[in-house]
Design a protein around this nucleic acid. Structure first.
Lengths: 130, 130
DNA sequence: CGGCATCCCTAATGATACTG
DNA sequence: CAGTATCATTAGGGATGCCG
């Protein structure tokens, strides 16, 4: 029988595992993270919202190059994951305001770690090859 | 004049920043990370190599669904980033062995954090919507 | 204003066959 | 065995225009 063991570590442990484990236990949650913050526009949107709440049009103007279609799609994704709050207030015109949720802000810790790792990696790569 | 300030935090600080800052300082390194471990096959390859060194054909068999073309490409990427070491030894047949480098193993810390965040997020999402 | 619907294009991946 | 070459497919976005 195959023994199913959960590794606390992913790459440093010598515990055997099956292809199933490889996929489900380690990879899926990491993929989730990548899906959540990956793509071309998720991070620009999140950082924009971290500064202040934005209306749809404001975001569109601030994030240069984004189309309303993509903005709409990405905002929906972020809202579905509870990172972004969407609030409609009908004055005379339709007005929709997007804001970061507390949960959205809690992404920050992870983002900082990823950023620092990335900065370090880039340093390493550029210093190695010259 | 616009003041250029580096935020230690990404989403929790109220310091203003320009679109340039948004892109270059925070987003690019995070994108780097995503590019390095993203894609369909990078993580399966890394986890496979973490267990033991593999030859090309072994990886191809172990990682179900991958084509030699993709395997070759992904291995090249990983090698370029210094995560994977490629060693050719000519016995009677051509034999190429791939292994994780120490630097590749150092990815582990970050992967564990991402995984744990992802697991937690998935829990949160499934408990919320039922 | 805040979006959706439609068409379109390219880059990434897959399938298959082949080579040193 | 360890890949490469070629063709076929697809999905992620862009461009544009329209609607409540």
């Amino acid at each position: 029988m195959i023994t199913y063991l959960i590794k606390m570590s992913i790459l440093n442990s010598k515990i055997n595992y099956t292809a199933v484990e490889e996929c489900k236990i380690f990879i899926r949650p990491i993929r989730d993270v990548i899906e959540i913050i990956g793509g071309k526009w998720k991070l620009p949107i999140l950082t924009a919202l971290s500064f202040k709440d934005h209306r749809f049009k404001e975001l569109e103007k601030r994030i240069s190059g984004i189309t309303p279609k993509m903005l709409s799609k990405e905002l929906k994704d972020l809202e579905m994951n509870n990172f972004v709050h969407r609030e409609v207030s009908e004055t005379s015109l339709v007005m929709v305001t997007y804001s970061l949720t507390e949960y959205g802000k809690s992404l920050d810790n992870l983002l900082v770690l990823m950023r620092d790792w990335g900065i370090n990696h880039r340093k390493k790569m550029t210093s190695t090859y010259r």
